[in-house]
Design a protein around this nucleic acid. Structure first.
Lengths: 148, 148
DNA sequence: ATGAGTGCAAATAGTTTGCAAGCTG
DNA sequence: CAGCTTGCAAACTATTTGCACTCAT
């Protein structure tokens, strides 16, 4: 499986995201390109460690992954999630299609859940007078292969 | 503020919860009583460290807090949440009123959000063939006093 | 009395910070 | 060439594990 090359389908997505970086005043480096490429081909949210592990050896230090992912999330190109154990995970915000995930707590298999009541929730937040609202929503369960 | 004594309002709730422990085959110890008492009077979800800090000095080791909270969550008397930074937090499941929280990321102030689309979400999970579904849902924002 | 529960110490996992050197715009 | 970015080392926070001892049932 292509470890550090982007396929045709994800190429334009990465390009578009890199553009967003510049627009946000961040610099485009080979490390960041590689990171975005990895996230673009991932079919589920990745933790910093996992993202790092996907990169060709020597591409980039783990610390850089942490720092970049955090910055990317701040400018909105990545969406933040949490695992049941508290680990932070990130996935590309494909345009405006905010979504969530259903993760098997046994094997890690992940399904995409397009339902999101984020707006509804954030309106509630607004009604309390809160601003800069964000939310985290994750589903966990045992997948069909992990009936355990 | 009453650090380690339960007031009248929370007393019955703690008693009821202790009963649930026995029914689940767990033992009732003075440490666990103290833990539940602390959680019963807390007006927002507490992390293990925070729970421990509320206890009278010497009541119980931090490790015991971790172990107990985890077990309590497993038998359903506590509800698990996550902070934006991944820290796990717990609050008493007052009967069946599953709920969520809106937390100020600056001062920590917390509001209770009674809206929950958990059933809806867990049905989606079931439609994927997943079992033992749980979910985590937390809202974060800046409260009116922390416009920053 | 028997095994669940506890405390203490130590190990882990995930993440953050400091600082000097490197690269982007 | 200014300053954002990176790497390396080290510090930290949250949480887990091993083991002998204690206590609830």
């Amino acid at each position: 499986m292509g470890k550090h090359t982007c396929n045709h389908m994800t190429e334009s997505l990465v390009e578009k995201t890199l553009l967003q970086l510049s627009q946000a005043g961040l610099r485009v480096t080979k490390q960041r390109k590689a990171l975005l490429c990895t996230l673009a081909v991932a079919d589920n949210p990745l933790s910093a460690e996992e993202t790092h592990a996907q990169l060709a050896k020597g591409t980039c230090d783990l610390v850089t992954v942490y720092r970049s992912l955090e910055q990317f999330e701040k400018i909105g190109v990545l969406q933040l999630g949490v695992r049941e154990n508290g680990t932070k995970v990130y996935c590309l915000s494909h345009g405006h299609d905010h979504h969530h995930h259903l993760t098997c707590r046994s094997c890690g298999r992940t399904e995409r859940v397009d339902v999101c009541m984020g707006d509804e929730l954030e309106n509630i937040g607004r009604s309390f007078g809160y601003t800069k609202l964000t939310h985290v929503m994750e589903l966990f369960g045992n997948c069909p292969d992990c009936v355990s």
